[in-house]
């Protein structure tokens, strides 16, 4: 047994992880959540704004991180639309455009009163990494003269009077890396005092915690925080309770739980092999 485990091919571990992650997905396991104070801060940053506030939705993620970040992006969009805020979608990631369109589809399906140009606008993608942030924070039209359909911002009612993003009441950033939350904090939120909340991958969350609560009003770290956010949203808006599309992150907590427990088991088994090996003189 010891020799078998010591020389275990890593592909068996891959297979084990595959199986344990699949079971809860197929079984549809769900768990209750207890929203952390930081998640509640994010929720209130949006909830406490007067209805119809201007929110800049900077969605900087791509298909690779879609599994982890898309549920929280959808939750942000849904929450803002429930509050009747005006949404300005924008991305610094070339692959982010179609993901913004998926957010817009959510608005079209669930909020028929929302009108393009009046209540939400898609400013699309701009190249240049953090460059566009530095520009739009003082002059929006210098970097974004037209929306994604090529319509001039001067012809769109909700952008007609917008000179720069300092006129936004809140920036909501969903970030998978660079350019992302750090750049928004460095070049927009902090120097120009624009209230900002962020959602990020689990691995980059610890890196962003130092910005909370002074420079970021709140951070959603990974799918766990997204699930807590959805839970808070359902608490506040009970009409979402029976809507499965409003529970994408909650649905993903089942596989996460089982995968974490599997990791712990693997670490324990790995250490057992190590100590047995050491007692036998196989390892130093």
């Amino acid at each position: 047994m010891y020799t078998f485990l010591r020389d275990l091919d890593r592909r068996w571990i891959f297979l084990l992880m595959g199986i344990v992650a699949t079971v809860p997905i197929l079984a549809g396991w769900r768990f209750p959540e207890d929203p952390s104070p930081m998640v509640r801060d994010v929720f209130h940053a949006i909830e406490d704004l007067p209805d119809g506030s201007r929110i800049f939705m900077a969605y900087d993620y791509d298909p690779a991180s879609q599994g982890e970040l898309h549920p929280m992006a959808l939750a942000f969009t849904r929450h803002c639309a429930l509050k009747g805020h005006k949404l300005y979608f924008f991305t610094l990631w070339p692959q982010g455009g179609p993901l913004i369109q998926q957010n817009i589809r959510l608005i079209e399906r669930n909020f028929p009163d929302y009108e393009y140009g009046e209540d939400y606008v898609n400013l699309g993608y701009r190249s240049g990494q953090e460059g566009p942030i530095k520009v739009i924070v003082t002059d929006l039209r210098k970097s974004v003269a037209v929306d994604v359909n090529g319509t001039s911002l001067s012809e769109i009612p909700m952008t007609r009077d917008i000179r720069n993003i300092q006129q936004m009441d809140l920036i909501v950033n969903v970030s998978a890396g660079y350019p992302g939350t750090k750049e928004w904090v460095l070049y927009a939120s902090t120097p120009y005092n624009i209230e900002t909340v962020a959602g990020c991958t689990g691995v980059s969350a610890p890196y962003l915690y130092p910005y909370y609560p002074e420079q970021l009003a709140g951070i959603l770290g990974a799918i766990k925080a997204a699930a807590e956010y959805e839970y808070t949203l359902i608490e506040e808006y009970p009409q979402l309770k029976d809507d499965p599309t409003a529970q994408e992150a909650l649905r993903r907590m089942g596989p996460q739980l089982v995968a974490h427990v599997t990791l712990i088991v693997l670490i324990i088994v790995g250490n057992t092999i190590y100590f047995v090996g050491r007692s036998r003189g196989d390892v130093t």
Binding site: L8, R10, I13, F14, L16, M17, G18, A21, D62, P63, A64, S65, Q66, G67, E68, Q95, P98, A259, T262, L263, L266, I267, V269, G270, N271, Y274, F275
Partner: peptide
């Protein structure tokens, strides 16, 4: 593009598992 990118990202779960098994030792 979307499924291929998601696949590459999802591979992290498997690599973390193998790294946990191999590298986390109470030395």
């Amino acid at each position: 593009f979307l499924p291929l990118s998601a696949t590459m990202f999802a591979m992290l779960a498997f690599y973390i598992a193998s790294a946990a098994f191999r590298a986390f030792r109470a030395k």
